[in-house]
Design a protein around this nucleic acid. Structure first.
Lengths: 156, 156
DNA sequence: TATTGTTATACTCTATAACTATA
DNA sequence: TATAGTTATAGAGTATAACAATA
């Protein structure tokens, strides 16, 4: 069993960086949406969890507060995100997508997903299913600390 | 079938960046080997393909020549890689691991793999197998252009 | 003239440290 | 005093453009 997890670890180390580079470059190559991976992930998280604080977003992204503060600055400057002071604790901020942010997210997701799907086109239904299941299996193991499971997914 | 590849694409977009961040941070957190992901991948490639040129390495990494030139500078400065002029075409260079580079690679691979394997420890044998197969399925779809399949793997 | 590698320069992403405002 | 967020500054990592040497 140990040798098996080692083999999987070796494969992950081999394959993940290559996929990541593709995702990055495909996200960049689409001219209309100048989203980087962290910006894209921020918008996705705010769609799932509207009203979160900066620290909650930082926890999800696995980045420090200053880094996320700058990311949010950019998103606010481009009118994709609304930043407000919390009513209950005025030190905190609450973050949410604007309608424009939702549009940008929808477009970016559609485009990037379509390009990834193109690469997967040669897979059989069985192979697709294996990859799909693998992602579902791996995801919880790498979830950043402090990242809550969205309420809609608790179902177990 | 289309909805299936779309679903897989969505999962990849969700999960890959998170795994990538973990790989990065685990690689950095181990103090003795200060290898970044691209440095690590360079060493791995030179182990498989000793004697390659800078452009071949750049093709494998999916980076531009100037970027790879700087990476190689660093590896040479740290005595991990030997850089020589080619005899047949003196514009070209040939790159190869030094014994020290091999040691650094071995240690980094062992450590990083072990940490990843720790995260996978809770998986059942079946789950391991699914993830393993998924990586094998995905890998060829995302191989960078100009990246040759290592001679030892042609076997088919 | 085209190709291989290098140097010069700049931009993005991220981090640590220091600061402000609120609790 | 502790916490949430911000600002200031610095260090990777990458790219494009310009250059040198060789073919």
């Amino acid at each position: 069993m140990d040798s098996s997890t080692d083999a999987v670890a070796r494969e992950l180390l081999d394959v993940i960086p290559v996929i990541m580079r593709t995702i990055r470059s495909e996200m960049r190559s689409h001219r209309s949406n100048e989203l980087t991976v962290p910006l894209f992930r921020s918008l996705m998280f705010l769609e799932q969890q509207p009203g979160v604080s900066l620290q909650e977003l930082a926890g999800h992204l696995g980045l420090t507060s200053p880094s996320v503060c700058k990311i949010v600055d950019g998103l606010v400057a481009h009118s994709m995100v609304k930043r407000q002071h919390s009513n209950t604790d005025r030190r905190k901020i609450t973050l949410a997508l604007t309608p424009e942010g939702q549009n940008v997210l929808d477009e970016a997701r559609t485009n990037t997903q379509a390009r990834l799907a193109d690469r997967l086109a040669s897979l059989s239904a069985e192979q697709c299913e294996i990859v799909f299941q693998a992602m579902k299996i791996i995801q919880p193991l790498f979830r950043p600390a402090g990242d809550k499971i969205p309420a809609g997914e608790i179902k177990i």
